[in-house]
């Protein structure tokens, strides 16, 4: 059974049984690798690439005329892998959640609900900003990443409030 520590900000690995450990570790691994793939897809030639280029080249700016860094084939397979990793992570996480108690699920459901609401509100603002030309178009990758970050933040706040 999931037992939080640090007022809900972390958990006791020793309190989980074998099946829960496998489900949690595999799910978190899939989320981590999936997020790495997602950021790779989102930033092929983008601002983080620029930053990495400058750091690696002692401040030299990347060439202006660079083309897409990922070939279409790599892009397609990386997209497929990313979707697959997130799908597997979601299924394993739901199996893990089903084994936990109601306080865990209440915190989790609240973080999904409030996290989704905040993400939608942010997306509405983003789209408004795009229409008046202040912001670039939102992409599915950024929305998914925002949702993950906001849900995690809501979890942390709720966990600190409810768990000791």
């Amino acid at each position: 059974m999931y037992e939080p520590t640090g007022r809900g900000t972390w958990f006791k690995w020793s309190a989980l049984n074998r099946a829960e450990r496998i489900l949690l570790a595999t799910s978190l691994t899939c989320i981590g690798v999936g997020t790495a793939c997602l950021t790779q897809l989102m930033d092929a030639g983008g601002p983080f690439y620029d930053l990495g280029f400058r750091l690696g080249s002692g401040g030299m700016a990347p060439p202006e005329t660079r083309s897409a860094l990922l070939s279409p084939v790599v892009d397609r397979w990386l997209t497929l892998l990313t979707v697959l990793l997130f799908a597997v992570a979601a299924v394993l996480w739901s199996l893990f959640s089903a084994r936990q108690d109601e306080l865990f699920n209440r915190v989790q459901n609240r973080s999904y609900g409030l996290g989704s609401f905040i993400t939608l509100a942010a997306l509405a603002l983003w789209l408004a900003g795009e229409r008046i030309g202040w912001l670039p178009s939102p992409t599915a990758g950024w929305v998914l990443l925002d949702w993950l970050v906001i849900c995690t933040a809501v979890w942390m706040v709720d966990a600190r409030r409810l768990w000791q």
Partner: peptide, 10 residues
């Protein structure tokens, strides 16, 4: 009762 210790505490 099948819950975590922290749930009882809460």
């Amino acid at each position: 009762v099948g819950v975590s210790r922290q749930t009882i505490n809460s």
